[in-house]
Simulated scan of single mutants.
Amino acid sequence: MSPPVLAEPEWQAREQAHAERMRAWTVPHQRRRARGEKHPVLDFLFTYYSYRPGHLERWQPGAGSVLAGPAARRFLDRPGFTETAGGVVLDPAACTGRRARTAEFVLRLLSATASRPPRLSCFGLHEWAMVYREPAESVRHDQVPLRLGSAGTDAVVESMEMRCGHFDAFRFFTAPARPRNTLAPTRESQVELEQPGCLHANMDLFKWAYKLDPFVPAELVGDCFALAADVRELDMRASPYDLSGYGYPPVCVETPAGRAAYARAQAEFTRRAAPLRARLIEVCRALLDHRMVERD
């Protein structure tokens, strides 16, 4: 089957729409950074995750589409793009070395995650565990107060069971908090423990999308980023921090009503993440299948 050909007006319209969509986040971030202003919720999307704003705005079709028209020749300045009789195309054969190994890992991780039922009973206590018994001067977001104070925060951690199975959250737990967790996740056990209800696993779909750049269509990267931004909001609203000054009302997970609200939102994010995870799995399989054919 011949690859689909995107006429120049079509792909340029997609390119413009993607850039405008992402600028809703990138432009305010860049303005805050120019002012030296921190944001305890949104900075995470550009500091913890290493994809630069300019790259987030940049459009690519992913593998398998031919870009027609003379303007498409500018894509030849990017790695992996090649010119054919019909136009410019991203060659899946360019997925070699480190990116191929990344695709193999992402395929294993996301397939394993998708195979499991979601767990919706962690109630966001990972953020509480990150400040448990921590001196005030060492608290991660020291520009905002703890909603219940240090003693009240510690009391919540001590009154509830912690079930965090995500290593990249667990590794930020304070030393006193780690033994209180029912699991001891490691990098090596990530594929074994990841589950689709985890907020961080769903935020990390954005990371896996950009790690496979440029083979993931920009719109899919954008969808994963938009999900990560919404999940991050719940993550911090359910945290011990008082973010009311930034316009974020708390989800009070120390109460039954707050836990129920958190679980409902977590279930909705699980539903939203599922098709994005499936699409990333398809991208990985297509890239790796192409490599197998090339080798044969």
Rank of each mutant, 00 (worst) to 15 (best):
L42N: 04
A136M: 08
H39K: 05
N181T: 06
V88Q: 05
C122S: 11
G258H: 05
S65L: 13
R116S: 01
L125H: 00
M162V: 15
S244Y: 07
V231I: 12
Q16S: 10
V251R: 10
L109A: 14
M162C: 04
L107A: 10
L212A: 11
V157Y: 03
W25T: 02
A155G: 09
L276M: 05
A72V: 04
T113P: 14
R163D: 15
E294W: 03
F123V: 02
A257H: 08
V5R: 10
D289W: 13
T47W: 10
R171V: 15
P118I: 00
G80V: 03
M203H: 04
V27N: 01
L56R: 13
E37Y: 07
S121K: 06
V106P: 01
R116I: 03
H290D: 15
E20L: 12
R232H: 02
P256S: 01
G62P: 13
H29S: 01
M162T: 09
P53V: 08
E8D: 09
L45D: 00
A17P: 00
L193G: 12
G247R: 15
R237P: 03
W25Q: 13
E134D: 07
E233C: 12
D142Y: 07
V41R: 08
C95K: 07
E137Y: 04
A218F: 07
R78M: 12
Y246N: 14
P185C: 00
M130K: 04
F81K: 09
L76H: 06
E8N: 02
A238N: 07
G69H: 05
F173W: 07
H39R: 01
R187H: 11
T174D: 04
P240Q: 02
P28Y: 06
D154T: 02
G149T: 05
A34N: 02
G124Q: 03
S50I: 15
R147V: 12
D235Y: 07
P196N: 05
A278T: 09
L220K: 03
H126V: 01
P256A: 07
D213V: 08
P3V: 09
L56Q: 08
K207S: 08
F170C: 08
V106Y: 02
R133G: 03
P28A: 04
F44Y: 13
P117E: 05
A169N: 09
P28V: 02
R277E: 08
F46R: 03
E161S: 13
P179K: 00
V231T: 01
D223A: 15
R73K: 10
T270Q: 13
P79S: 12
D242G: 08
P214T: 09
C122N: 09
V66Y: 05
M1C: 12
D43R: 01
A85H: 06
H18C: 05
A136H: 03
G86I: 05
R101V: 11
E134Q: 14
L183N: 02
K38Q: 13
S65R: 14
M203G: 10
A68K: 09
V27L: 10
L110M: 04
S244P: 07
S2R: 14
H29D: 04
A34Q: 07
P185E: 08
C198E: 12
L212I: 08
A257F: 06
L6P: 04
E194H: 14
L56I: 03
A100Y: 02
P176F: 08
A177N: 05
D230R: 14
G124T: 00
D230I: 04
Y51E: 14
V231E: 01
T47G: 00
E83W: 02
M22R: 07
T47V: 15
Q143T: 09
C252H: 08
